[in-house]
Design a protein around this nucleic acid. Structure first.
Lengths: 113, 113
DNA sequence: TCAAATACATAAATTTCTTATGTATCTTTG
DNA sequence: CAAAGATACATAAGAAATTTATGTATTTGA
């Protein structure tokens, strides 16, 4: 089962930041694979969604990049900047809080009028 | 604190369906107030987001409507159809599952390379 | 050798929400 | 009792984020 894509909306940036916080540096394709692996294929990040997100994080100064050559192929590594580390904490705790609120909302028992 | 709007994206439909499942019938404005109340103002659904969503649910046959007059003012009640009830179960359990996956993802401990 | 995987990127179209606007009624308060 | 705020619906332009499609090129495995 793969989650309907609407669920992923709005969480992608947080997921990427958190992975970078846990892994020091990662490149785009690696991120897609890691998420796939860690979620047992339930979350699949497409490249069309990921790359623009990474570019936006870079434009916002939340990540820095370094390019490496593996044979003839380019690999672009992303790492959190100091402000990126702070942002990650904010985003992760906001999402955790949000999920608690949602669990509460979804568990509300019938009030049969 | 109000959640950044991107977090709400993708969950609105599920929230509405779940509220209808718990309350038999509700009207639009009531839904906005109920969500605000149940989440202590942390989730505020705007009318510009809600009404199109309700109309979409109706177009998909997931809810039925009945109009009532309160004095001279119209009130449009929404109720789950049988397929809406099934859809609600699916959506809620998918979201619950998704949140478990996200909690796992967000709690991953550093693997320092 | 040929398909699949690796690895980047962009861009048009779509979806979904925000922000703004519009209409109208009802209630509360100075 | 007038005015402000709350109730109640609705739509539409614009913005934001993603999907889907496409493109390029290299490397690996059957």
């Amino acid at each position: 089962m793969i989650y309907s894509s609407e669920l992923i909306k709005g969480t992608l940036k947080t997921i990427v930041l958190k992975l970078l916080a846990d892994n020091k540096k990662m490149y785009g394709y690696e991120i897609t694979q890691k998420v796939k692996e860690l979620t047992f294929d339930k979350i699949q990040i497409t490249e069309g969604a990921l790359y623009p997100t990474l570019h936006a994080l870079e434009a916002d100064g939340l990540v820095t990049t370094e390019t490496e050559f593996i044979g003839k192929r380019v690999r672009k590594y992303y790492s959190l900047s100091p402000s990126g580390k702070n942002k990650t904490k904010e985003k992760v705790s906001e999402l955790a809080d949000f999920m608690d609120t949602m669990k509460f909302l979804l568990d509300i028992k019938p009030k049969q009028a």
